[in-house]
Amino acid sequence: MQLRPLSILLLLVFAIQMPLLAQDNKDNINAIDTYFKQYVDDDRFTVVYISGKLFQMLGKLDKETLNVEGDEEAQALMDIAADMQGLRILTAEVGADALYNEAKQKIDTKIYQQLMTVRSRDGDNFELLIRENSEGKIQELLMLGGGDEFVLMSFIGNLDLDKISRLADEFEH
């Protein structure tokens, strides 16, 4: 059988696109791997990772273990945990502001949209960014914090801002 150039062209296009589309859906794409890889092996930083499997196990824990104040808070926490595929945390107590500014410069704002920026009088900085997938759903929530401590948290999963907002309300009450 002889393939026409157009058929070969279409096959090649699909061959190129498939791994890229597959990669887009991988849950391991995150800001820390992309921009802050060098911090992970740096002794100044505390690194924590909670995998998707651990999040699944959280659903089996009771309220006391979770150390929550009420059923609604526990429910709000579990609702978000059910959608979570990974949480990566980097913290450092030395040079927090410099690290915060460096992190802000490194994050590509073409990929991460700014959701909220807070700058308080006592020097505590807070920034929330999101990364959406090709369907417009939030795939990653990135939190940057400066001030007394530098905090960088990358939440990966099918995230729902309404659920996070509900939890924020519960924490406030």
Binding site: L58, N67, I80, L128, G145, I164, L167
Partner: peptide, 23 residues
Amino acid sequence: SPEEAAQIYRKAMLRVSTGMNTG
């Protein structure tokens, strides 16, 4: 342990929530 993970997760969400509420 999952218990330790739960504590860390709650603190992380608390930090995000506090930031959001402050904002």
